[in-house]
Design a protein around this nucleic acid. Structure first.
Lengths: 205, 205
DNA sequence: CATTAATGATACTGTACAGTACGGTACGGT
DNA sequence: ACCGTACCGTACTGTACAGTATCATTAATG
């Protein structure tokens, strides 16, 4: 099983170990010897699989993207009332980000974006873009059903507006090492207020 | 004038040159020799001023913070009607971020946050926190005047909600190298829709 | 001016690390 | 049993760079 199974396992092991290390210490903070010290094996194989340190990095980002997709794909908003759909989406997104790995993935993608543009783009498509997409299709349904104002632009932009308002400050504080993102449940006032503001606005009456 | 003026000028020149380079190529992408090649002078002086590369980095971040503060401090919202205050704040924030330097400063702060926590914190206090603070005091006034709903939490959080909804997606796309932040004027539909949604909500009627 | 402190030019040290070379070893196919 | 391919271990090369040391030069102070 050298080309079909053993090799795959080895490759996966390397990518997995490298993911952990890159997320922990950043691209420059990890040497290839560090990776090999975890996986065993030698540089020859590593280079035969990935060609370069950058090649390994790309593979790592793809892996991270795959995993990032999982928790949000399960989300089913179809036919929920607006308040509940928003709440559920908000809670889900915040809970994804409460995993330190998610924040470190952001940091890694942002740090290396100038040197690895394709990886950064892949990350954007896979991670932050997905949540907004799901909510957007939901909002489009509601808009088509006449439950929402039609004068406020594309559903995609509105979806972004809501999610971003929830996420931005917490994510920035986490990225800058000021405070971790905490887990929230459906009753959290932070989420509740954002949903309410988004639904009915800030102005009285 | 060695300690009082000449030295200060030299010090400033080094910090300035280093700012440019760090913002351009990141902390690891710049060697001290690169900096000295721009400023002239020698390592002796550099080390006598900053002690280490990290010391220089801290000085650079402080300088960046100082400059980041300038354009928003001029903003005067007092006694403006809500729609206009929001619009003006939104346009200002987006225009600050449309300067590539601002985005690169974010990237630098985020990248180095694990290794330079105090610098990252200083950046947060100086840059993103200021805009929200200004809008928050304005919103507190309006809330006190009874023009806003009082059941939606702290003004500070509401201010963040608005600014973040506007900023997050554009900033992320810029940080990930997908699209630059564009300048906007007061009539831009992007800003107008966000203001309207924030004021009156998404639900029809 | 002379003295002293600050600055300059430059060479050196030590280290970390990406990438290569190469001889040896397990293992699958035939 | 034999061969070839993929893998291992490890040593080596070249380079980049933070930080130090040395000595020459310039500028402030009295």
């Amino acid at each position: 099983m050298p080309k079909t199974e053993r090799a795959q396992q080895k490759r996966d092991a390397i990518v997995k170990a490298a993911s952990v290390l890159f997320l922990e210490r950043g691209f420059n903070g990890v040497s290839l010897d560090d990776v090999l010290q975890v996986t065993g094996g030698s540089k020859s194989t590593l280079y035969s699989y990935f060609g370069s340190k950058d090649g390994l990095f790309e593979a790592v980002i793809l892996r991270i993207c795959d995993e990032a997709l999982i928790p949000l794909r399960a989300l089913e908003l179809h036919h929920l009332p607006l308040r509940e759909a928003l709440t559920r989406m908000g809670v889900s997104v915040l809970n994804v980000l409460s995993e330190p790995v998610a924040v470190e993935a952001y940091r890694l993608a942002i740090s290396e974006a100038p040197r690895h543009p394709e990886a950064a783009r892949a990350y954007y498509e896979a991670a932050p873009n997905v949540a907004a997409g799901i909510l957007a299709t939901y909002l489009a349904e509601r808009q088509a059903a006449g439950e929402l104002r039609g004068d406020l632009g594309e559903p995609r932009r509105l979806a972004s507006l809501f999610i971003d308002s929830l996420v931005h400050n917490l994510l920035m504080k986490a990225l800058l090492g000021i405070a971790p993102v905490l887990r929230r449940d459906e009753d959290d006032p932070f989420v509740r207020d954002a949903v309410e503001a988004f639904m009915h606005g800030l102005v009285r009456g």
